[in-house]
Simulated assay, not measured.
Amino acid sequence: MVQRRMGLQHIEAFRAVVQTGSMTEAARRLNTSQPQISRLIAQLEQITKFALFDRTGSRVFPTNEGTRFFQEVEKAFTGLSSLEAAAHGIRSFRADRLRVTAMPRLAGGLLTRITARFMVDYPEVMVSIRSGTANTVHEWISSGLCDMGLAMLYQETYGVEVEPLHTGQCVAVLPKGHPLAARDSLTPEDFADHAFIASPGGGQLAERIDQVFTAAGVRRRIVAETDLGASVCTLVGAGLGVSLVNPLAAHEERAAAGLEIRPFTPDIPTTVALIFPPYVARTRLVSEFSAYARRQVQAELAAMGNVPPVPL
């Protein structure tokens, strides 16, 4: 004959009876019948080979052995509660740390908004945002110093894993009331006689813009240089010149800087991308934050009218 083994149903029934002092109340607590509770207690007494309860009318009281057994049961349930708390902590990334990076414009704008949404749902995660130049961001990611980054890319990028989120085209930014604002779109030739705010040499955007104007045979009159899209827009808004920037920077700074925005041809593609350290498996935390980034980018681009919202 196979000996019956102690199961979770036996323990739950026993615990409920001790806590309520009644088979009937224990049945209500566990959403079952009183006869079922009685059967489980009888089976448990057969398994333990000692009486668990003294019965007085409708009330039941644990025996000395039952009390000692209940103390051991509570220790087990305390351990189970600890496991449940540990599982919740793992699920909610409790005490985890995520290091993210971007150039200052993205770090202070789009990346901060992504982080704010993420931390509403995962408040126990420590998110560290670092900003730097394009080259610095690339180094932090490629070396693994940061877990992931948000970048504007203007050409193929090596040494990091790239996940494109959206590719658009650079736009022309002009001061309010500028003569070129009368045109629906602009070309390199339109900039020939106008002051130009440029990106410093060596950067991806600067190289792409140089290539376009060189191919068109147009020499720009550069009056200032800055590697920050926000600074470019501020200088343009102040009437110091015109420029070309990525569409996110242009639309974010349009109202504050007082800008006119126009399409520019030939195309200078710009890709909003997530970048990750190479040859490193993404953790669940990194994957979850990436999903928030995708949704935020799509929502903001949709608000700009560049792309329809896409479920991610």
Score class of each variant (00 low, 15 high):
90 I>G: 01
47 I>D: 03
14 F>K: 02
17 V>H: 06
71 Q>E: 12
248 L>D: 13
127 V>G: 10
232 V>L: 06
151 A>S: 12
131 S>W: 02
57 G>H: 13
299 A>Q: 15
246 N>P: 00
225 E>L: 06
68 R>C: 02
224 A>P: 01
146 C>T: 12
306 N>C: 11
241 G>K: 03
220 R>Q: 11
158 Y>W: 10
33 S>C: 02
87 A>C: 00
121 D>C: 00
210 D>W: 08
193 D>L: 13
305 G>H: 09
153 L>V: 03
244 L>C: 05
299 A>N: 12
50 F>W: 07
99 R>I: 08
43 Q>W: 02
302 A>D: 07
238 A>K: 09
1 M>Q: 09
215 A>K: 15
95 A>C: 01
74 E>S: 05
282 R>K: 15
84 E>K: 10
52 L>Y: 03
183 R>W: 03
201 G>L: 14
109 G>E: 12
310 V>P: 00
144 G>F: 04
166 H>N: 09
106 L>E: 08
72 E>K: 13
249 A>G: 00
203 G>P: 01
299 A>W: 07
298 Q>S: 14
228 L>G: 05
51 A>V: 01
90 I>S: 04
149 G>S: 08
57 G>W: 12
210 D>H: 14
29 R>D: 00
137 V>R: 01
278 P>A: 07
14 F>N: 02
150 L>Q: 02
244 L>S: 07
309 P>L: 13
310 V>D: 06
161 E>T: 13
239 G>P: 08
80 L>K: 13
85 A>N: 13
119 M>V: 10
7 G>E: 12
95 A>D: 14
44 L>Q: 01
55 R>S: 11
302 A>M: 05
236 V>M: 03
227 D>W: 01
278 P>D: 04
231 S>C: 02
200 P>Q: 11
258 G>W: 04
54 D>Y: 10
56 T>E: 15
292 Y>Q: 11
287 S>P: 00
2 V>D: 14
261 I>S: 04
195 A>K: 04
110 L>N: 10
116 A>I: 08
225 E>P: 00
49 K>G: 02
175 P>Y: 08
219 R>K: 13
79 G>A: 12
253 E>S: 12
218 V>S: 06
167 T>G: 06
2 V>L: 14
232 V>N: 05
85 A>K: 14
239 G>H: 09
62 P>V: 05
249 A>V: 15
43 Q>P: 01
276 F>W: 05
241 G>M: 04
84 E>P: 00
121 D>T: 00
109 G>D: 11
241 G>F: 05
130 R>L: 06
3 Q>V: 14
66 G>I: 10
301 L>H: 10
